[in-house]
Design a protein around this nucleic acid. Structure first.
Lengths: 118, 118
DNA sequence: ACAATATATGAACACATATTCATATAAGGA
DNA sequence: TCCTTATATGAATATGTGTTCATATATTGT
């Protein structure tokens, strides 16, 4: 793998070894990208925003993001599976809230990034 | 929009107004998700990792991530268009490097997140 | 001018993803 | 028990995305 590199003159073989040694493994890269993928949809981002401010039931989220209940349910499943949200049941109503302190940090970092480059 | 909400008893109309007022607009949500989408691919993440350590030419990146030169070029275009990388030309060789201080921060935050929940 | 090399690009294809519609499940009240 | 309401789920569909193959562009050396 390394031997095929064009050896760009700006990097020596020893540095190259180090790069490869610390590189994310295939599964690690897959996991990381799967995590980011969750944030890569406007509807989910809106849901994340709302949940970052207040726990909400599905029906409320549905009207807030302006999308059918079914669509929101499907997206909440994605958020649940990536453990970004948690649920609380009260009778027939299910309240969702954020279940991770990193989530909103990431959201804000990205926001800041976009602000800076505009 | 708000009036259709089921008024979940845990949130009053006044709070609801505030939520909506501060919510990301349609275009803002779109921009944010587009940004995150860039990170949502293992190949691009690997490229980002390598570039976070050292500037590299396309051929090196190609062999490092174990993917055809064409595929890497296509992904580099995505990274260029989202202004995450910059280029330096030396003859016929083009060196890529990261062009944003937020990028690796995001990468590391996500890494930390995955570590914590495992 | 020509050959060789590095990178970029367009078309094609396979695969993933978001939404909708219809319907299932589950809980509460009459 | 039956009806109503909140949420979840499966199938279908349309759209988006990543990779490959073939080829174009551009630069250097002969």
């Amino acid at each position: 793998m390394i031997d095929k590199a064009c050896l760009c003159k700006t990097i020596d073989p020893h540095q190259m070894e180090k790069l490869v040694a610390n590189a994310p493994s295939e599964t690690e890269a897959q996991r990381l990208s799967d995590f980011f993928k969750v944030f890569g949809d406007p509807t989910r981002l809106k849901i994340i925003y709302y949940l970052s401010r207040h726990e909400l039931c599905v029906a409320d989220l549905s009207s807030l993001v302006g999308m059918q209940q079914s669509a929101v349910s499907h997206q909440l499943k994605v958020l649940r599976m990536s453990r970004l949200v948690k649920t609380r049941k009260d009778g027939v109503t299910i309240y969702y809230s954020l279940d991770d302190h990193h989530v909103f940090t990431l959201y804000e970092l990205a926001q800041q990034h976009l602000k800076e480059q505009s």
